[in-house]
Design a protein around this nucleic acid. Structure first.
Lengths: 219, 219
DNA sequence: GTCTATACTTCGATAGAC
DNA sequence: GTCTATCGAAGTATAGAC
């Protein structure tokens, strides 16, 4: 949820995104969400019924958004390698716009989907499915070496999501002087990952085009 | 914490590892930890003082173990590429032995280190530091292309940890028929990642030795 | 749709006997 | 070191007026 929002349900969802991302399902407080959304707590229950339903609604929309963006990338007419570049940039962009996305994804994996119903699990499953489609076609067309699409999915998504989610702890570590990560800027990291994935997936070396301008980091 | 344990504090730590990994700091219940450790709750407080101190103790030992294993890998006399192979296998092995490690790592990143004191943060920082050392030397010696060591760290650790932590949700997705990930076995994934990292880091293609037998997945 | 007040429950932590 | 009993805080949720 980007920033403001006019209507109550939207403001509540935005506040919930911040709270659940920062504290997790169990650590999140309904009172804090209500206060941040500037609505009465009873209003929150009026619209969403329970903390759990609010959480599921948020996650469905978050996962659906990620899956939709990846499907859009896969629907284009670019080369498989360019699509993977674009997929990485897309996930990074999503993480920048919806800052709750990385932490929520990590938490839900760690949680084992404990709070999710079947429908929300389905929304989550659509994310790897969308990316796997891109890789499968690349393998089938001979553009990529023979890799398991799900292995490629984890190799791509995990670094982006973990790196983006680690922003707070990076600051913490920098402030206390324990480790300096300031020299690795987000855009540099995205480019590194794009280069690495290109090399990792290329069928053979000479066939790996140096790079495309298709979709590089934005901000 | 591997399996049983004779003494109370060890049993408590083992139980805490399971509980905190599965439910997170806020979701963990002191009563459940005590019951699982087969000790009285008062005993737990006698040994660890508070839920927070117990958590920090667990995390310090977990992170210290990971860092120590990576330092051991970096201390050998193998080629940088073989060391990276070994580092990946080492983290995967650690995740198999200490099954709480992946989830706890993901959760703490998402949490932004909220419950950690300076000492525990230092233990966490030692993990990337150990791996970065390996990569730095590889870059300096010309074995690797010029990459930011921290970028390589995230590209290596994140897939292993996220894949391993995702085991419960993979089962969930398979059971409900939403997504079949059964065809990607852990060992296959580790090998994929080793191959990918080798290709991603190699200075140029011809210089990338096909593979070493140094340390492949164990189990 | 909106708010106040509150019922009900759970949980971290401790007192105090042995 | 170990146990029972319990306190007090915090949290989800709802009743009921407007």
């Amino acid at each position: 949820m980007a920033r403001p929002a006019k209507v109550s349900p939207d403001r509540i969802l935005a506040a919930a995104a911040t709270e659940f991302a920062a504290r997790g399902y169990a650590g999140a407080r309904v009172d804090r969400i209500a206060r941040r959304a500037r609505v009465n707590k009873a209003m929150l229950y009026y619209h969403f019924g329970s903390k759990q339903q609010l959480y599921r609604t948020l996650l469905r929309s978050t996962f659906a958004q990620a899956a939709e963006r990846l499907r859009a990338v896969g629907g284009g007419s670019h080369s498989p390698a360019d699509m993977v570049d674009a997929a990485i940039a897309t996930i990074a962009d999503l993480a920048r716009e919806e800052t709750h996305f990385p932490a929520i994804m990590l938490r839900e994996v760690a949680e084992g989907g404990a709070h999710l119903d079947r429908e929300t699990l389905g929304a989550l499953a659509a994310v790897p499915a969308a990316f796997a489609g891109i890789v499968s076609r690349g393998v089938a067309s001979g553009a990529f070496r023979s890799v398991h699409p799900m292995a490629a999915y984890f190799s791509m998504l995990a670094p982006v999501v973990l790196y983006m989610a680690a922003a707070p702890i990076r600051r913490e570590l920098a402030d206390t002087g324990l480790l300096d990560l300031a020299t690795l800027r987000p855009d540099d990291f995205v480019r590194h990952l794009q280069d690495s994935m290109r090399r990792a997936l290329a069928r053979d070396v000479s066939s790996a085009p140096p790079q495309s301008r298709l979709k590089r980091p934005t901000s």
